[in-house]
Design a protein around this nucleic acid. Structure first.
Length: 481
RNA sequence: GGCCCCGUCGCCAAGUGGUAAGGCAGAGGCCUGCAAAGCCUUUAUCCCCAGUUCGAAUCUGGGCGGGGCCUCCA
């Protein structure tokens, strides 16, 4: 079995064969740091976190580069509005980004370079393009000449003539062709700048990713990822400038994640329909957000709504409840020599799903089946005395924790996680944990006295307040409805 | 206007030629003092029409509906 990935360049799923066997070089476009990240950013980063984790799980030696774009018009404007420097602003939002991603439980990339720390590489790359006749300087700017690159638009599958006919491009007088894009921009007064052969200026948006990608991964590397909205112009331009400079294919596999929608519409800042990660995390556990995102295939659109988040929370709770039950049982049943294949079978299905273009939705479907199997085993009569069944549960339990690491889930201690969810939800209810415990004690007494009318009255009273009682072998527990 | 994607059970969502995963919700049952949780059983022929094929949710054409890119955007 082997990994197949959907390559935007070919428009098909392809067998994944890294350029150097066993090693993968992967670059993902990070964010422009001028504001807080929204759930769309969360999706992109979680998706590629999964790609990263799964490649590592598949025994690849992965170098993962994710950049910070810390010089850009929007940063400059926002900094001016606030009366601080671009650097101060970008530092602030780099920190915010790191915090958000940390809370979402993302693995740290191998390298997280900043554009402003690679100006020399950028300038060198631009010079190389000028030397090749692929770019030209014009009044302090430098532009890439799109007509000089035959493969231009091969990623987005557009047509140069038709795009120009579309006429939404402001014809810059400094450009030879309106489609030419800036590699280097002359600094206007008050803007941050670096010295260059073309005067004081700063890099264009696209060139930084080419420069940093090549710096850390070589002139040709395996995977380049980002949101679908980056296909054109960003990634298209990266290909043009990179391949025109080196004469080699820049990237082997281009991966793009779908959008997060709100009411079927793309979430974006201009529509004002975005939700920041930090706002969402006030209500929902990070793992719930992750589960929500992974419950759909990464290329499909996903609709953000309170209802969908709640469903995700319910789904994840089902896992943790099963895991908690298993953990309790296993703690009391010593490991035996009995072998069980349940775990390896589940892992094989999981891999089959993930090998098919990182189909996390399918993989989670298999995990749900695994949970049901585990629950079924534990519900068997005299379960604890049956070594083969206990061995199966143990195998499944361990497999869950193992596979959970690939998805960034199930990492919490089940009891603690469920408790935390419960306490968070309790804050919205008109009752405290102590009051609940006291009522449970009263009810226990009533039950012992066979006063079931009183017992049921207490249960109804709690139910009215949103509390559900669970009578188990070890006593009565409760959860939020 | 150009290019592209999507339309699967009440809801969410897999499935790209071989007879529809999974979750939530619903129904029946087991368990329970009664419940809850859990377990078992059960619920779709895939927007419409026409074609290709022994066979299509999956391919082709047309239609209807929704969305994206073409300007910064994950």
């Amino acid at each position: 079995m082997s990994l197949r990935v959907y390559n935007t360049l070919s428009g098909q799923k392809e067998l994944f064969e890294p350029r150097v066997p066993g090693k993968v070089g992967m670059y993902v476009c990070g964010v422009t740091v001028y504001d807080y990240c929204h759930i769309g950013h969360a999706r992109a980063n979680i998706v590629f976190d999964i790609v990263y984790r799964y490649l590592k799980y598949s025994n690849y030696d992965v170098t993962y580069v994710r950049n910070y774009t810390d010089v850009d018009d929007k940063i400059i404007n926002r900094a001016n509005e606030r009366g601080i420097t671009s650097q101060q602003l970008s530092e602030e939002f780099i920190q915010a980004f790191d915090e958000d991603m940390g809370r979402l439980g993302l693995d740290l990339p191998t390298v997280q370079p900043k554009a402003t720390e690679h100006i020399d590489h950028i300038i060198a790359l631009v010079e190389r393009l000028i030397a090749n006749g692929k770019a030209y300087a014009s009044e302090g700017d430098v532009y890439f000449a799109v007509e000089s690159f035959d493969d231009y638009l091969k990623l987005s599958k557009r047509n140069l003539d038709e795009m120009q006919a579309g006429a939404r491009i402001a014809p810059g007088e400094k450009k030879r062709n309106p489609m030419d894009f800036a590699l280097w921009k002359a600094a206007k007064p008050g803007e941050p700048f670096w010295e260059s052969p073309w005067g004081k200026g700063r890099p264009g948006w696209h060139i930084e990713c080419s420069a940093m990608g090549m710096e850390y991964l070589g002139e040709s590397f395996d995977i380049h990822g980002g949101g679908k909205d980056l296909v054109f112009p960003h990634h298209e331009n990266e290909i043009a400038q990179s391949e025109a400079a080196t004469g080699q294919p820049f990237v082997k596999y281009w991966l793009h994640n779908g959008f997060v929608n709100v009411n079927q519409e793309k979430m974006s800042k201009s529509l004002g329909n975005f939700f920041t990660i930090r706002d969402i995390l006030k209500t929902y556990d990070p793992e719930v957000v992750r589960f929500f995102i992974l419950s759909a295939h990464y290329r499909s659109p996903i609709d953000f709504s309170d209802q969908n988040l709640k469903e995700a929370r319910l789904g994840l709770s089902r896992f943790y409840e099963g895991l908690q039950a298993a953990a309790e049982v296993l703690a009391e049943c010593p490991p035996s020599d009995v072998e069980a294949t349940d775990g390896t079978e589940l892992a094989a299905k999981f891999r089959e799903a993930m090998d098919d273009d990182f189909n996390t939705a399918q993989a989670i479907g298999y995990l749900f089946e695994g949970i049901r199997t585990m629950n079924r085993l534990m519900a068997t009569k005299k379960f604890r005395k049956k070594a083969d069944l206990v061995a199966s549960v143990r195998a499944l339990y361990e497999t869950f924790l193992d596979l959970g690491k690939v998805l960034g889930m199930f990492g919490s201690e089940p009891k603690a996680w469920l408790d935390q969810q419960r306490m968070a939800a309790l804050a919205d209810l008109d009752i405290t944990a102590e009051q609940i415990e006291a009522l449970i004690a009263d009810r226990l007494q009533a039950r012992q006295d066979k006063d079931f009318a009183r017992s049921d009255a207490i249960r109804d009273e709690l139910a009215e307040k949103g509390i559900l009682l669970l009578d188990g072998a070890g006593g009565t527990d409760w959860k939020i409805k």
